[in-house]
Every structure is written in C-alpha cells, then in structure tokens.
C-alpha cells in the first residue's frame, strides 16, 4: 500500500496495523526518514517537500510493484509526506513484511533506493537565517539505486 500525505505518522502504529491478526509474517523491516538539523555543512531549521500529485502516487505504486515482483513479501507499505516539516519529524516510512528476514531486509533497502531517485519529491531547506535552498541530488543516491539494475 502507498500513502502520500501532509500529516505526520507514527512508525509503531503503522507496523502494528500492518501485522495485526497476521500469522503468515515472520519478519518486519522498517525504515523511517527524519528531518535532521544539518545538510552539506549547513544548519537546517525546517524542510518543505514539494511533490507532483498524481505522478507521485503512480511512481510509488510502480516501485512497490517492482519490489513485490523481486521478493517474496507478505505485505508492504510506503508513506511519504509533503508540505512543511520541523526538525525530528518523520518524512518517509517504508515497511516490508515477509516470512523470513532476507526478503524483508533487501526489499526495504531497494524501496528506499528507488524511491530516492524516482519519486517526484523535492526538498526545500530553510536555514536559521531565514533563507532557503533546494536540496541537490546526490551521486551516492544514484549509485545506490543503480546497484539494483540487473
């Protein structure tokens, strides 16, 4: 399942909801991305995420489908927020559930790597002086996503 939303979320609640009354899940892996107070040496005060409504949902669904084809998952969840976020707030959540840990670990990493290079979101960082800058793409993110190309 995918969700694109302005509101915050609670990782624990989401995992609980996903695994409730399920007896076929032996492993759950989650990744939560948070707003941190530094980037490339600059002090970050808050983050605003812009996205492309419509295309975002399509891309996230495609990424999720690709993971479900590659690995044996009982369930999966991607939540990505947009709008303004303060320090320490969650931005993104990926949860993968499988019978055994290997598939859940690998699929979670894949989902994050692909999401970072494909889902149409853009981060605008505001610093303590009140000025803001668009975050630049990272080569390391591109390299991480490329690992999964066969």
């Amino acid at each position: 399942m995918i969700r694109v939303q302005r509101e915050s979320f609670d990782t624990g609640d989401e995992i609980r909801r996903l695994t409730e009354n399920r007896t076929d899940i032996g492993a759950v892996v989650s990744f939560t991305g948070l707003v941190r107070d530094f980037n490339d040496g600059a002090t970050v005060q808050s983050l605003t995420l812009e996205h492309y409504p419509g295309m975002t949902e399509k891309e996230l669904s495609k990424i999720e489908e690709a993971a479900r084809e590659k690995w044996d998952l009982q369930d999966s969840l991607i939540i990505h927020r947009y709008g303004k976020m303060e320090l320490a707030e969650p931005i993104v959540l990926v949860v993968t559930a499988s019978a055994h840990r290997q598939d859940a670990f690998a699929a979670a990493e894949f989902l994050m790597d692909w999401l970072k290079t494909k889902a149409p979101f853009w981060k605008l960082e505001a610093d303590t002086s009140g000025s803001s800058d668009w975050v630049k793409e990272r080569q390391s993110d591109k390299d991480a996503a490329d690992r999964w190309q066969d």
Partner: peptide
Amino acid sequence: VAFFPPVTGG
C-alpha cells in the same frame, strides 16, 4: 508535460 529538477525525496 512536466519539467522538474532531479528528485530529492526520501
């Protein structure tokens, strides 16, 4: 048609 910079979500 949409034009945008490389994406930086996640």
